[in-house]
Deep mutational scan, measured.
Amino acid sequence: VDYIVEYDYDAQHDDELTIRKGDIIKNVKKLEEEGWLEGELNGKRGMFPDNFVKEIK
């Protein structure tokens, strides 16, 4: 499942992704941690907030 970024987010920890509006995040999975998703961007896998992105259908 792929998501498109709607709002910029700067990573706060090493396991998070810095994302920018218009980025496409690939292979996204829901995490047990409420409010977070995990996906791949530019060869890096990491977490990001689910309210900054929208699923591409």
Rank of each mutant, 00 (worst) to 15 (best):
Y7A: 13
E34I: 13
G35H: 13
V53A: 11
Y3Q: 03
Y7F: 14
N51M: 10
F52Y: 07
L37I: 06
H13Y: 15
K57P: 09
A11M: 12
G46L: 02
Y7M: 09
L17S: 01
D50Q: 10
N27R: 08
R45H: 09
F52V: 07
T18F: 02
I56W: 00
I56F: 01
E40P: 00
I24E: 05
K26E: 08
Y3V: 07
K54G: 04
I56D: 06
K21M: 11
N27V: 06
D50R: 10
I25Y: 00
E38D: 13
E33D: 13
F52H: 09
E6V: 11
D8I: 02
E32S: 15
L17N: 00
T18L: 03
I4H: 08
G43H: 15
I24V: 08
E16A: 05
K21D: 05
G43A: 08
D23H: 09
G46A: 07
Y3I: 04
L41K: 07
E16L: 01
Y7N: 14
G39E: 00
G43Q: 10
P49S: 07
D15E: 09
E6I: 15
G46Y: 00
L17A: 01
Y9D: 00
Q12S: 10
L41V: 11
G39D: 00
N42D: 15
E55N: 04
I4S: 13
Q12Y: 13
K30P: 10
I19D: 00
K29M: 15
K30D: 12
D50M: 13
Y7K: 09
F52W: 04
E16Y: 10
D14L: 15
G35Q: 04
L41I: 11
L31H: 13
R20W: 00
Y9K: 06
D8F: 03
G39H: 00
Y9V: 02
E38Y: 04
E32W: 13
K26R: 10
D15N: 07
F48G: 01
L41T: 08
V53Q: 06
E16S: 03
N51S: 06
Y3K: 04
I24N: 06
L37A: 09
N27W: 02
G35W: 04
E6D: 06
Y9P: 01
V53S: 07
K57E: 09
M47P: 10
K57Q: 14
V53G: 11
G39Y: 00
K26H: 14
Q12W: 08
E33K: 11
G39W: 00
V53D: 04
L31K: 13
T18D: 10
Q12T: 09
V1I: 12
V28Q: 01
N51Q: 13
D15Q: 10
Q12N: 08
K29P: 01
I25N: 00
L17P: 00
V5I: 04
Y7D: 13
I19L: 14
K21G: 12
K26T: 15
V5M: 03
D14T: 14
D15A: 11
N27L: 14
P49V: 02
K21P: 07
H13P: 01
K29W: 04
E32L: 10
I56T: 07
K26V: 12
V53F: 04
D10A: 15
K54S: 11
E38P: 00
E16W: 05
E40D: 08
I25Q: 00
K30G: 10
V1L: 13
K26W: 02
D10R: 05
G22D: 07
R45I: 12
I25H: 00
Y7I: 14
D2S: 07
V1T: 14
L37M: 12
V5W: 02
K44W: 03
G22N: 15
K54N: 11
L31R: 11
K44Q: 15
I24Y: 08
Y3W: 13
N42A: 14
V28L: 04
N51K: 11
G39P: 00
E34V: 13
K21R: 12
E34M: 14
Q12G: 12
E16M: 04
V5H: 01
G43K: 08
M47G: 08
E32A: 11
F48L: 12
V53E: 03
D10L: 12
L37S: 13
P49I: 06
E6A: 04
E6K: 09
L17R: 01
F52A: 13
G22M: 03
D2H: 08
I24W: 04
E6L: 12
R45G: 04
E33G: 14
E55P: 14
D2T: 09
G22H: 15
G35L: 04
I4D: 06
E16D: 06
G39T: 01
G22Y: 01
H13I: 06
K44I: 12
E38L: 03
K30R: 08
R20K: 08
D23K: 03
K26Q: 08
K54I: 08
A11P: 11
P49Q: 11
I24D: 02
N42Y: 04
D2I: 06
I25M: 03
K54R: 12
V1A: 13
N42E: 11
V5N: 02
Y3A: 08
Y9H: 07
Y3E: 02
L41W: 05
E40V: 07
E6Y: 09
E32M: 11
E38V: 04
N42P: 03
R45L: 07
K44D: 04
Q12R: 12
P49H: 14
T18P: 04
G35I: 03
D23L: 02
Q12E: 13
G46W: 00
E38W: 02
K29D: 11
V28E: 01
W36Y: 07
L37Q: 06
F48T: 02
L17Y: 00
I56H: 09
E33S: 12
N42F: 06
K29G: 14
G46N: 02
F52S: 08
G39V: 01
I24M: 07
G46H: 01
A11E: 11
F48I: 11
K29N: 13
Y7T: 15
V1P: 14
G46P: 00
T18H: 06
K57Y: 01
E38G: 04
M47A: 10
I4N: 07
K54F: 03
G35T: 07
D50S: 12
V53T: 09
H13M: 15
D2R: 04
D8Y: 03
E33F: 14
H13A: 11
Y9A: 02
V53H: 05
E55W: 00
E40T: 10
K30F: 05
E34K: 13
I56K: 06
G46S: 02
D50P: 14
D50Y: 06
L41H: 09
V5A: 11
N51F: 06
A11R: 08
E55I: 15
D50I: 10
D10H: 14
I19H: 01
G22A: 08
E38Q: 06
H13T: 10
D15Y: 12
R45Q: 10
V53W: 04
Y9I: 02
N27H: 15
E40R: 04
D23W: 01
I19N: 00
D15T: 12
I56G: 05
L41Y: 09
K29T: 14
N27E: 11
V53L: 05
E40Q: 10
N51E: 07
E33T: 05
N27Y: 03
W36H: 03
I25G: 00
I56E: 07
I4P: 02
G46T: 01
L41A: 08
K29S: 15
D8S: 08
E55A: 12
Y3S: 04
K26P: 02
D50F: 06
E6N: 07
E32D: 15
V1S: 12
K54H: 11
D23S: 07
V1E: 13
Y7Q: 13
G43N: 10
Y3L: 14
K21Y: 06
Y7R: 12
G43V: 03
Y3H: 06
G43M: 12
G22E: 04
D14A: 12
K26M: 14
